[in-house]
Design a protein around this nucleic acid. Structure first.
Lengths: 230, 230
DNA sequence: TATTGCTAGATTGTCGACAATCTGCTTGTC
DNA sequence: GACAAGCAGATTGTCGACAATCTAGCAATA
């Protein structure tokens, strides 16, 4: 018999689809930070009852991109500069760890997948699809976590990813300028293919620095304006 | 006017109470790994409808101590040796990070709180209350995370804590022997009060090693027996 | 004028019932 | 006896309605 690897079929509950829809809306910025989610309105728009919607919202609360206040409502999380800074410095350490763990496990499949994801980023860049560009860049970045062979590390990264994607989408929308067309990931990919682990770690750290610094500056600006307005 | 810091009043939704009840049942081992949670039966026992129960279960699924299969049921997660090993090696790195971040921020309040939590562990040990002993030991350990001033790091620790507590409770119940009565945390506390950060990090790493190694051996034994039985 | 108490509307939390799906058993066929 | 089809029971997923709570606005009071 031919060996066939069937993947589990998709979860076809309304709940799962609602989670996907809401997450996408939040991560792409269609739902803005701080915005309240009106259950009745959303359930009517989605043609779904409130029960699965509420369950979906509970999941996203635990995922860390929604926050709930009993009898008041469920809101998209607010983004403070401190939050971004925390995520950023945490991410730096996690990256070093992931590269270290994944390093010895790199194989041909790893390199192939690396190229595939890199190509996806370049495609999104050519298409001027900023949302997809962020998404694919994070997926490219996530490969080292998938290869690190540690479920807790991977899970932590995935949780962090949600928020990172939200932050970057927010930033992109705000500055509203064409995405950088040059390929900022070329060096990263090459280093991951190379022999110098320390160099790869160092570059990951510095490369992340760049993106985050810009993001941080933007968030700080937001807060300064907010405090003046108040 | 006297300055009074009121803390937010407790969430008094059924959902929140259910979450607390279920979490406690899982972490103390009243609900065993792999066990299925029958919604109807539990809701009847708690005198609650299935809606808030289901929402509570969604939260715990995201928290990582329950797992859900559509139309099949929601189960307490199974504990594989690999999971414990992953949590263990991840925890080592996190600990080093937390100590490093918290080190400069230690103050009198930190030392006081450290003593307070240490005392709580000793009290639980005197009471021969194993569940509480695990709980307080993790709280003692968590102080460095609370002091590290990084929300993501703290949140990650808290998520990990749930599973750690479950693992240790499982272990304790299994070996079914009186808890060690000597104070294994004395050195840890003293080092956190001292001046040598590296020494504190090293001890945290080695101290954790001990507990985990025993736990791992136990889990591996379980799996070996399970594979033979099948 | 500032503060308190009340009311109406909107929104969230909870409930009981129904629909969709799974599981195990029985039945029938070869 | 082996196997597939189909039925019954149990369980999960979803729905619509009701109860509890909050918020904003207005009236009453000092």
């Amino acid at each position: 018999m031919a060996k066939l690897d069937f993947s589990p079929i998709a979860d076809t509950t309304r709940r799962a689809e609602i989670v996907a829809l809401l997450r996408r809306a939040i991560l792409t910025g269609q739902l803005e930070p701080g915005q309240k989610l009106n259950e009745l309105r959303i359930s009517e728009q989605m043609r779904v009852s409130r029960a699965p919607l509420r369950e979906a919202m509970r999941e996203l609360v635990q995922e860390g991109i929604l926050t709930s206040i009993p009898y008041a409502g469920t809101f998209v999380i607010n983004v403070a500069a401190k939050d971004i800074d925390d995520a950023y410095s945490f991410n730096k350490v996690m990256d070093e760890l992931a590269i270290e763990r994944a390093w010895k496990l790199r194989d041909q499949r790893f390199f192939d997948e690396l190229d595939r994801r890199h190509e996806a980023v370049k495609q999104a860049t050519r298409d001027l699809d900023t949302t997809r560009q962020i998404e694919t860049a994070l997926q490219l970045h996530g490969l080292i976590y998938e290869w690190a062979d540690n479920s807790v590390l991977l899970e932590t990264w995935q949780r962090l990813t949600s928020r990172l994607q939200m932050y970057f989408a927010l930033h992109q929308r705000a500055r509203n300028e064409p995405v950088p067309s040059e390929d900022v990931h070329e060096t990263y990919v090459q280093l991951l293919k190379g022999k110098d682990m320390r160099a790869a770690q160092r570059h990951a750290r510095e490369h992340i620095d760049l993106d985050f610094e810009e993001l941080l500056a933007y968030a700080r600006g937001l807060e300064k304006r907010a405090s003046k307005g108040a």
